[in-house]
Nucleic acid binder design. Structure first.
Length: 185
DNA sequence: TCCGGGATTGACT
DNA sequence: GTCAATCCCGGAC
C-alpha cells in the first residue's frame, strides 16, 4: 500500500478528517507491523474553533499544530491517556489537526490484544486513548513524520460507503460544528 | 507560581 | 448511570 503523501494533508482540516476514514494506520515495532483501518476522526482547526488546542496561541504543547502537515500530534490527557492526531490544514491557515478516535484492528491483532490486556475485539481500539494503548503510541511519538515509512505511518486503504457527521465528543465549546466523522457499518 | 480542568476509560452501584 | 484515577498544561493571578 502506498503511504499518503504530504499533499494529502495540505487541505482544509475538515476535508482531511473525512478523507482519512478508511485509510490504514500502521505501527512498526521492531520488525513487526500492526495496523488498523481508521473508522472515526474529528477535525480541530485554528482560531475559528474554540474546542481546538490551537484556538488561542502557539504553546509548547500545540506547536506542531502550527508546523508542517503530515506530522503527528500526540498529547497527554486526564492524567493517564494519550491521544493521536495528524497535522492537517490548507496552506493559508496557521494551525489544525485531525484526531483519530477509532480504528478497526487489521494486522497484528494478537499483539494488539496483548498491548490492551483485553481479548474483546469490539473494545480493542474503539476510542482515542484505546488505540494509542493498542499501538503503543506515547509522547515519544510527538512530531513524527507520518509520510515516511518509520515507526508510524498512514497508507491508502478501503473505499468508504457513507460518512456520518456528528458534533465532536467531550468538548464544551464548538458543539455546533459537525466535525466528528464516522464510517457507517 | 498556582490551580482548575481536560479531544477518556473502566470499574462499580 | 456515576465516578475515580492521575498528571500536565495553560491562563490567571
Amino acid at each position: 500500500m502506498n503511504i499518503l503523501p504530504r499533499e494529502f494533508y495540505q487541505k482544509d482540516t475538515v476535508i482531511v478528517a473525512k478523507k482519512l476514514l478508511g485509510k490504514k494506520l500502521v505501527r512498526k515495532i521492531g520488525n513487526q507491523e500492526i495496523s488498523g483501518i481508521i473508522t472515526e476522526t474529528e477535525a480541530y482547526r485554528h482560531n475559528d474553533d474554540p474546542a481546538s488546542h490551537a484556538f488561542r496561541k502557539i504553546t509548547d504543547r500545540n506547536k506542531v499544530m502550527f508546523g508542517d502537515v503530515g506530522i503527528s500530534y500526540v498529547y497527554f490527557t486526564y492524567g493517564m491517556h494519550y491521544c493521536f492526531n495528524v497535522v492537517a490544514k490548507k496552506s493559508k491557515v496557521p494551525a489544525g489537526a485531525v484526531l483519530i478516535r477509532s480504528i478497526k484492528p487489521d494486522k497484528g491483532i494478537k499483539k494488539i490484544q496483548g498491548n490492551r490486556n483485553l481479548k474483546d475485539l469490539k473494545n480493542l481500539t474503539n476510542g482515542p486513548a484505546k488505540l494509542t494503548q493498542a499501538l503503543r503510541i506515547t509522547k515519544e511519538h510527538y512530531g513524527m513524520d507520518l509520510t515516511k515509512k518509520s515507526e508510524i505511518y498512514i497508507t491508502e486503504g478501503n473505499k468508504i460507503k457513507k460518512i456520518i457527521e456528528s458534533p465532536r465528543i467531550g468538548i464544551k465549546n464548538g458543539k455546533e460544528f459537525l466535525w466528528n466523522f464516522k464510517v457507517m457499518d
